[in-house]
Simulated assay, not measured.
Amino acid sequence: MKTFQLEVVTPERKVYSGDATMVIVKGIEGELGIMANHLPFVTPLQIAPVRIKTPDQDEHVIAVNGGFIEVHNNKVIILAESAELPEEIDIDRAERARERAEERLRRAKQEKIDYHRAEMALQRAINRLRVAGRGR
């Protein structure tokens, strides 16, 4: 199977770099599957797991919390606001963050709480839990 170079980077570090046969991301218009020799494009990403299929038939999952994907010249770069590998995720911390965000959303109508910010926090927590294998 044909491959392409993939990098997942955040402002702090390079999270992943290697050859891939396919990467599956969730853009603002829906799910995208990118394979070798894909047409060039750039699009924003939603908070969602990124699935990477490698030449040796492995599949890696990374919790990506927004950003952009750029495809050009058989190279894919994901510029993420933040990204974590499954083994880096503190499950207890993510559970607590999910609970806090859900509580903020419940109180949003009675109090002056930034609903959008609470919703984004909830999405990030759920994304981390999914990638860590504990999500719903």
Rank of each mutant, 00 (worst) to 15 (best):
R98D: 03
K112A: 03
N127V: 01
E111H: 01
V71L: 09
K14C: 14
V42Q: 11
I34M: 02
R96E: 13
V15L: 03
H60P: 00
V25S: 04
I91D: 05
Q5E: 14
V23Q: 02
K75C: 14
I69T: 15
D19V: 00
V8W: 06
F4Y: 08
P55M: 06
K14Y: 06
E59F: 06
K53F: 15
E99A: 14
H116N: 10
A101T: 08
G30F: 09
L79S: 15
A36N: 06
E59Y: 05
E119N: 07
R136F: 11
H116F: 13
A121V: 00
R51S: 11
L39V: 10
A20E: 04
A118S: 12
I113P: 05
A20T: 09
E70N: 10
G133M: 03
T3N: 11
E29P: 00
I77C: 13
Q110C: 00
N127M: 03
K109Q: 13
M35T: 12
A94Q: 00
I126T: 07
R107I: 06
L79Y: 13
E95S: 14
R130M: 14
L32K: 11
A83G: 06
L39S: 11
E87M: 08
Q123N: 15
E84Q: 15
D58A: 14
R124P: 04
N74F: 10
T54E: 00
H116M: 10
I52C: 07
G66R: 00
L45Y: 12
E87Q: 14
Q46I: 02
Q57C: 05
A125N: 04
R130K: 15
K14F: 01
E95D: 12
A80L: 08
G66T: 00
H72G: 11
D19C: 02
Q5S: 13
A48F: 04
E88G: 12
E119Y: 10
R134P: 05
I113E: 08
L85K: 06
P44V: 14
K2N: 11
R96P: 00
I126A: 02
Y16F: 15
